[in-house]
């Protein structure tokens, strides 16, 4: 009688404390039936990667509004790969200009959501692309 749940970590890397989006999303993921681990603000990529592994999450959702995503997002993806946890999907959101999309995808970020993305569209993406592992 297996009862698989999707586990997702919502994390705020860097020094930016604008957590409105992160907190709204955490609630939204809960309401979608996921188990959500929220890290709070001001996390280093190292803290996020270590936590994601300890929590065995399927997805890490990063939120950054400070412009430091170009460093922080790839850093998380790279650390997960180094710790043999490259199977954890990393997605991101925040103030991210379009020209940064491709380099971020290349670094291992699987999806990006910018202001105006609906909650439904984000949940749908997760539902479609992530299956809880056994």
């Amino acid at each position: 009688m297996s009862d698989k749940k999707l586990r997702i970590m919502v994390a705020k890397p860097g020094l930016d404390g604008h957590d409105r989006g992160a907190r709204v999303l955490a609630r939204c993921f809960r309401d979608a039936g996921f188990e959500v681990i929220y890290t709070g603000c001001h996390q280093t990529p190292e803290q996020i990667a270590a936590s994601a592994i300890q929590e065995d999450v399927d997805v890490v959702g990063l939120s950054c509004l400070s412009g430091a995503h170009r460093y922080l997002f790839p850093a998380v993806a790279k650390l997960l790969q180094e710790k043999q946890a490259g199977d954890i999907t990393v997605i991101g959101g925040g103030i991210i200009p379009e020209q940064d999309f491709q380099p971020l995808y290349d670094s291992g970020i699987k999806a990006l959501f910018t202001p105006g993305a609906t909650l439904d569209s984000i949940v749908d993406w997760v539902r479609t692309n992530i299956k809880p592992r056994a």
Partner: peptide, 16 residues
């Protein structure tokens, strides 16, 4: 309250 050479500041300098 961090200097630019702090590890916590990586990637943030002058960004916003």
């Amino acid at each position: 309250g961090y200097d630019t050479d702090s590890p916590k500041a990586r990637g943030e300098c002058g960004k916003c």
